[in-house]
């Protein structure tokens, strides 16, 4: 649940801020900083989104019903 708050309150606003600031008149140094910040946040969200989604569902499951890693990740029914 804390990760959800982090995603909602920090990462997404950071991305939005980066997108918004990219269109403003800033110095070259500030533009580069925002560009690096934006690309970093973009990479984090891109490759961290699916693990984040899986973790949230897994953390909501009770301890007795938590599956192993293969069963958690596999969309195939036999796993």
């Amino acid at each position: 649940m804390n990760l959800l708050k982090i995603g909602l309150y920090y990462i997404i606003p950071l991305l939005l801020l980066s997108i918004t600031m990219a269109g403003l008149n800033l110095s070259e140094e500030s533009k580069e900083r925002f560009s690096n910040l934006f690309s970093s946040a973009q990479t984090i969200v891109h490759y961290g989104w699916l693990p984040f989604v899986i973790y949230l569902g897994w953390s909501s499951t009770s301890n007795s019903n938590k599956p192993n890693l293969v069963s958690l990740l596999s969309p195939l029914p036999s796993a």
């Binding site: 949230l56 569902g57 019903n65 990740l73 969309p75 029914p77 796993a79």
Partner: peptide, 14 residues
């Protein structure tokens, strides 16, 4: 398409 309900709150599809 194969889809599965991994846990009570997790769903996946390939």
């Amino acid at each position: 398409i194969a889809s599965n309900r991994n846990t009570k709150f997790n769903y996946s599809s390939i």
